[in-house]
Every structure is written in structure tokens, then in C-alpha cells.
């Protein structure tokens, strides 16, 4: 862990409100953030989105931020459930917010970073 373990209940509370990364720290409290990227096979935009997302997620703890890539031709019913209309679409689930949809090739890396931050997941420096 990059941060010192809390020494007591008070310290732990302190950590909760002030620490910027992987809040809350305790495993039982940890938000598991799932990212689902819907792509279509053979699509240049989808390929771009994957590359962009890989680059964005490189600095994140994959234990906190998980990624699943779904091919809309294989997972059409799941895509319907997730109300995916455009591809590529990235869905962020399990954030402080209920969910968020990002449509496009993710060429603007800050979009995903900001959404994760809004949900309390900071990228390690």
C-alpha cells in the first residue's frame, strides 16, 4: 500500500475524508469500479477507443478499476440491457454515481479520468 496503515478509528476517519486515493481504504469498503467497453469488430473507432482506454488505465490499480471489453455482435442482448446505441461506448459502473456512459473513441483522455475522479477513484501519481 502506498499509504501508511491507519493507527486507529480516528486516524481511519481522518484518512476517509482527506486521502485522495482509493477511498475508502479498507478492503471491505473498497468500491470496485467496473468499466465495460462495447466495441464492434473491425471498427477503427473501437480500436482507437481500446488503445486510448488502455493508456488511461495504465496508472490505475486494476484491483480497483476493472475492465471488460464486449463485442456488440457477441453480446447484443447485454448491449441492449446497457442501452448501447453507439459504438464505441464505455460504461462506468459502481462509482459513487450510479453509472456513466461515454460515447466515442475516448480521444479525450481526461473524460474518463474525470469521471473516475468524480466517483472517488484517483489515478496514482
Amino acid at each position: 500500500m502506498p499509504h501508511p496503515a491507519p493507527a486507529g478509528a480516528h486516524a481511519r476517519f481522518d484518512a476517509c475524508v482527506s486521502r485522495p486515493y482509493a477511498w475508502p481504504l479498507h478492503d471491505g469498503w473498497r468500491v470496485s469500479t467496473q468499466l465495460v467497453l462495447y466495441v464492434s469488430p473491425g471498427s477503427a473507432l473501437s480500436l482507437k477507443a481500446r488503445r486510448n482506454l488502455d493508456a488511461v488505465l495504465a496508472g490505475y490499480d486494476r484491483g480497483v478499476v476493472s475492465l471488460e471489453v464486449r463485442d456488440v455482435t457477441q453480446d447484443a442482448l447485454k448491449a441492449e440491457e446497457d442501452r448501447v446505441v453507439f459504438t464505441p461506448t464505455l460504461i462506468l459502473k459502481g462509482l459513487g454515481l450510479d453509472a456513466a456512459w461515454v460515447v466515442g473513441d475516448l480521444s479525450d483522455h481526461d473524460t474518463v479520468v474525470n469521471l473516475l475522479r468524480l466517483g472517488g477513484v484517483e489515478r496514482p501519481q
Binding site: V85, F86, T87, A99, W101, V103, G104, S107, D108, L115
Partner: peptide
């Protein structure tokens, strides 16, 4: 159901197409 999700924000980042709907 192809309604726009109302339970969270929808953000655009870069280019996209309708392949998702087409494949559905």
C-alpha cells in the same frame, strides 16, 4: 429499449458510429 440512459451522465469523447444499434 434504446432510450437514453437517465440514471447517469452521457458524455461524448471523440468519434463514434451506430454499429452498436446496428448489431443489436
Amino acid at each position: 429499449d434504446a432510450t437514453r440512459p437517465m440514471d447517469g451522465p452521457l458524455v461524448v469523447s471523440g468519434e463514434y458510429d451506430l454499429s452498436g444499434l446496428v448489431h443489436r
